[in-house]
């Protein structure tokens, strides 16, 4: 017999919550300095940095919280944090 206890959610539904609105600083990716090392993709706690087919990374500003980790860790200095204009 099934017990109807608890509650359930559909997988991955957190995407409804656009955390980009939290941002006060915006990471700007300077592609001419980028060595395509992929570090920014792996260190982003939001998982919102994606590299295109050429390996060039770009953040999804709908979700980027502007934490600055990618800019801090980028070995090439190819990410600049700029004050968000709203």
């Amino acid at each position: 017999m099934a017990l109807g206890l608890g509650c359930s959610s559909r997988p991955g539904t957190s995407r409804a919550n656009r955390t980009g609105s939290w941002r006060t600083f915006r990471p700007v990716f300077l592609h001419d300095k980028c060595t395509k090392c992929g570090l920014c993709v792996s260190v982003c706690p939001e998982g919102c940095v994606v590299a295109d087919s050429e390996g060039i990374p770009e953040p999804d500003y709908d979700y980027c919280k502007g934490c600055g980790l990618c800019a801090e860790e980028c070995p090439a200095g190819a990410i600049e944090m700029q004050k968000e204009e709203k």
């Binding site: 957190s14 995407r15 955390t19 999804d60 919280k65 502007g66 934490c67």
Partner: peptide
């Protein structure tokens, strides 16, 4: 997925 509510960083 993105959209979780952890503090930035």
């Amino acid at each position: 997925e993105s959209g979780h509510r952890a503090c930035g960083g």
